[in-house]
Nucleic acid binder design. Sequence first.
DNA 1: CAGTCGTGGTC
DNA 2: TGACCAAGACT
Length: 354
Amino acid sequence: MRDEEMNAPATGTGIAAEMLHWYDRNARDLPWRIPPGDAQTPDPYRIWLSEVMLQQTTVAAVKDYFHRFTARWPTVADLAAADDGAVMGEWAGLGYYARARNLLKCARVVTQAHGGQFPDSYDGLLALPGIGPYTAAAISAIAFDQPETVLDGNVERVMARLYDIHTPLPAAKPALRDRAAQLTPAHRPGDYAQAVMDLGATICTPKSPACGICPLREPCAARQAGTANDLPRKTPKNPKPTRHGTIYLAQRTDGAWLLERRPDKGLLGGMLGWPGSDWGENAVQAPPIDADWVTLPAEVRHTFTHFHLVLTVRYAEVPPETVPRQGVFVAAHDFRPSDLPTVMRKAFDLWRGA
DNA sequence: CAGTCGTGGTC
DNA sequence: TGACCAAGACT
């Protein structure tokens, strides 16, 4: 390499080459990843599953779920054949439950309309349920080594710093996408995509980035300007209101619990939960069944993306013949608290005294 | 387009 | 301790 090139790493090809060089020595060992240099071909099913799980979710949180899903459903056809309730139960605790509903929809489309093979193109992937611009680019790049540009929170942060872009998100997104697209190499685009995301996750972190050991420290404009820690800028978020509600834990004398399957649309859609009131300013609703209700001495507090929730929990033991107005009784041996979304499990733990 | 949609970790 | 944050999608 000529000195001129050595001193001009701010070119697109120079930066991509630097990224790949760094990735070859620093790629994280992840359950869904084929290490750089390995002759194996990625399994599109595993790449797809991991990418959906990783949407707005940390690697640490995903790992165990990924292992359980792939052990129980090794192929997309296996997943397509699964019961809805089994998939929702296995997803419980991971959050953003629309992902699980779309996951199952997608598995069935791929199995029934695509012969069990994922499309290898960005457009083909984008047409599938639960696959948006980021995930379509990620799967086509990582699983099929197509030169698509991934733009996630990591890449946005790396680009904002590398080019010292001060426009706040989400307005800056088109500019950041342009920069990212310019850097995407034709050679090893899958490894490059993972390299940028690894860099954002381990070096170019949101707070206190490790600029000293960053492979892009020389071309990075924000590091030179001293603005790296303040980028990317973001438009401030709205404050979270607090909502209130009441949920009812009814246990039959034979041990069965009164539960309901929540409607597919909306909060915790498709998940199992305790029947109860709506959550609002001052939600009041008749209990789902006539009983001698006891209000637990503590409340459940839980924070969702856009509001805080305070739940009053009431408990009652009811005789076997009682017919509920809401929900269905689930036999004790069929009830697994791990099937519940976290806020519902908190209520159960509160009753149990955990 | 801006609101909706979870959760656990971090500082 | 509360606010921010994470490999976004959907409406």
